[in-house]
Structure formats: C-alpha cells, structure tokens
C-alpha cells in the first residue's frame, strides 16, 4: 500500500473506465458524477488507508485479509459492518460528514471516512 490517503483521485475503477467517464463528463457537463468504489485494506490489525475521502453515493469496500474477524463500526453507531476473516464487505455512503470508525473486537484499529455531498 502507498502511504497516500485514498480519495476520488485514485478510484478502484480501471483506467479505461475512468477515461470514458472523463470523456462522458466533458460531453455532458450536466451529468451526475458516477459513484465510485473505494477499497480499504484490513490487514495486520489496521485499516489502510486509515483516512478516506469519498462522496455520498460512493461505496466503501473493506477487504479483510487477516485470519481474524474484525468489524468496521461507526463511533456514532450509524453503521456496523461485520468483517469475517478473509472477507470483503461493502457499505454505500448515505450521509455527508466525517465519521470515525473502529473495530469492536480490537478498538486499537481506527479509521476515518470524510464524506462530501454528491457532486451535481
């Protein structure tokens, strides 16, 4: 993993798809931005990147490659995603705002989602 925080500048979507998207956006400036999937690795008892910037409508995908079960649980309890050992789980972001989250089983694992309003 690079140390850079994930953001919409480095989406999971492939280069070709991104290029098509840019072309479409240029051709239809009024079109809604396409929702993206942002991947967070859950490995060696850490969320990586720990800080993610996303937009309402985007999907966060947590990929737990640890041999242990974890959770991604919002501190405000808005959501609680179970992450069994070697599993992937997703969450669609519905509200703008900064949400801190942690693993209920290992509270030393923490992360932050900075969710911006969907682009119109």
């Amino acid at each position: 993993m690079s140390g850079r925080p994930a953001s919409r500048a480095q989406p999971v979507a492939g280069t070709i798809a991104a290029a098509l998207f840019v072309a479409a956006a240029a051709a239809f400036p009024g079109a809604h931005a396409r929702a993206e999937t942002i991947r967070v690795e859950v490995k060696s008892l850490a969320f990586s990147p720990a800080q993610v910037t996303a937009r309402v409508g985007d999907t966060i995908e947590w990929a737990n490659t640890d041999f242990l079960a974890h959770t991604a649980t919002a501190k405000n309890r808005d959501w609680d995603v179970q992450l069994p050992a070697n599993s992937k789980k997703t969450l669609v972001l519905k509200k703008a705002g900064t949400v801190e989250y942690f693993c209920r089983f290992h509270p030393n694992m923490t992360g932050t989602l900075m969710v911006e309003e969907a682009k119109r």
Partner: peptide, 13 residues
C-alpha cells in the same frame, strides 16, 4: 508481533 497488536486490542476492549 501480530499477536501483540491483537492482544493490545483485547486489552482496550
């Protein structure tokens, strides 16, 4: 070392 991180989590929990 992984065990230590896990058990530090348990300690906090």
């Amino acid at each position: 070392e992984t065990g230590l991180k896990i058990f530090q989590g348990h300690e906090q929990h």
